[in-house]
Every structure is written in C-alpha cells, then in structure tokens.
C-alpha cells in the first residue's frame, strides 16, 4: 500500500484513503455544443496510456475530500509529485 502526499492536507497518507480519478488535465470544453464529433470523441474517450510518467487525478475521498493532480510513474508506481487542482501541469 503506497503512501500518497495530499497537497491539501500536506502530508503523506495511506493509499486506501484515496480514489484514482483517471487522467489529469482534460478540461471539459467550455462550449460542448460547438464541438465537432471528432473533438468531442477525443475529449470523451481518448486517453494516454504511457509507460512511465503519467499525469493523473486522485481524490482524497476518505480524508479532506479534494481532487488533486499527481505525476506517477506507471512502471515503478512511485509518485513524483502531487499538486492542487487548477495548478499548471508539472
């Protein structure tokens, strides 16, 4: 069970307090109805599956409740960093 640093609580907490929430930095288009089918498909369904560095979202669901972003290595399962939702991609 890994430890994850919650950027809101500012401490490492056990994995079972968290829930993964998929790839990070995929913003909902401001005007969905203005999206072409291809653009909307890309937003809805197309996700990265990198070997190595991966930006993803987690939620400290059994803690402070906040969603945040993380950079995790998908090979080693090590977290490089975590940062608050809304902060620029690292």
């Amino acid at each position: 069970m890994i430890l994850i640093h919650c950027p809101y609580c500012d401490e490492k907490r056990p994995e079972i307090e968290f829930a993964n929430a998929g790839q990070a930095h995929i913003a909902r288009p401001l005007d969905p109805s203005g999206q072409s089918d291809a653009e909307w498909e890309a937003y809805l369904f197309i996700r990265a599956n990198p070997r190595g560095r991966h930006h993803e979202r987690w939620r400290h669901i059994h803690g402070c409740g906040r969603f945040f972003n993380a950079v995790r290595d998908t090979v080693t399962d090590k977290f490089e960093t975590t940062y608050k939702a809304g902060e620029p991609r690292r």
Binding site: A19, R57, G65, R66, A85, G86
Partner: peptide
Amino acid sequence: NMMEDYLQTEWP
C-alpha cells in the same frame, strides 16, 4: 463523487 468532481474541477 461525480458531482464533487464537476464542482471541484470544472466549475470551482
């Protein structure tokens, strides 16, 4: 969880 997700990350 879904509503929190939209609220926190799309419409903060």
